[in-house]
Amino acid sequence: MSTIEAKLEELGLTLPEVATPAGAYIPAIRSGDHVYTSGQLPLVEGKLSATGKLGGELSVEDGYAAARTAALNCLAAIKSVIGDLDRIEQVVKVTGFVASTPDFTGQPKVINGASELLGEVFGDKGVHARSAVGMAALPLDTPVEVEMIVRVAGDAA
């Protein structure tokens, strides 16, 4: 077991299976020393952990938890490309999309769920640039979608 996966286990988390794409794309792709994920939803065993909009039927806490789950799914997609999460040298960028009502302005607090998970797991290597964007709607009525770019060491797996 990798050091990163041991850290996830210590946090009470399990790396999920890579989510099956809902369209004509792949979950992640490597280009040089970077891996780019497609947008990942907060899927748990193939089902959304929450649906709806922030500022409507969902609280910031609900969105935070969903963003955390989506980030975990990003890590699963990255592992499918590089084989071992210990090869991540730096989380470079996180983009979080938040389905929210027009008056909701807490998107950064929601996407902190993803960012703080990465900090807990990777320490300084988890510090990243980020965007948190409000959206009128997201696929399948998911409250959040997270995508990630990481820099990795070594040759392609």
Rank of each mutant, 00 (worst) to 15 (best):
L85M: 09
I78H: 12
L85I: 02
E120M: 09
V91L: 00
G96T: 02
E120V: 05
F104W: 14
V94P: 11
G119P: 06
Q90S: 13
E116W: 08
F97P: 05
V121Y: 06
S80N: 11
K93C: 08
N112C: 04
I82R: 00
K79V: 02
K93E: 15
V94T: 10
V94H: 05
E89L: 13
G83K: 01
A99V: 03
L85G: 06
L118R: 01
V91Y: 06
I82N: 08
T105E: 13
I88E: 04
V121N: 01
G113A: 09
G113E: 11
G119I: 04
G106N: 15
D84R: 01
P102M: 04
S115H: 08
D84W: 06
V98F: 04
E120K: 07
S100E: 14
Q107P: 12
K79H: 01
S80Q: 01
N112R: 15
V98L: 01
V121I: 03
P102S: 07
I82F: 00
V94W: 12
G113W: 00
T101N: 08
S115Y: 05
K109Y: 13
E116H: 08
V110W: 03
G96C: 05
I78Y: 13
I78E: 10
G119F: 03
T101L: 10
L85V: 11
G113S: 04
V91M: 01
V91P: 05
V121Q: 06
D84K: 04
G106Y: 10
A77T: 03
G106P: 14
I88T: 09
F104P: 10
F122Y: 12
G119D: 11
A77I: 12
V98R: 04
L117Q: 06
F97S: 12
G106H: 12
Q107Y: 08
A114Y: 00
L85P: 05
S115A: 01
G113Y: 03
G119R: 08
L117W: 06
V81R: 03
A76N: 10
G106S: 13
L85F: 08
A114I: 07
D86L: 03
V110Y: 09
K79R: 12
I88R: 11
D103E: 15
I111T: 03
V110R: 05
K109H: 09
G106D: 14
R87L: 03
D84Y: 03
I88Q: 02
V92N: 05
I78L: 02
L75H: 12
A114P: 07
E89S: 14
A77H: 12
G113N: 06
G106A: 13
L118G: 03
K79I: 08
K109M: 13
Q107W: 06
R87F: 11
G83Y: 00
D86P: 11
I88K: 07
T101P: 04
A77G: 10
A77L: 10
F122R: 00
V94D: 07
N112L: 06
A76Y: 14
T95R: 15
I82H: 03
V98G: 13
K93I: 00
V121F: 08
G83W: 02
V94E: 06
K109F: 10
I88G: 04
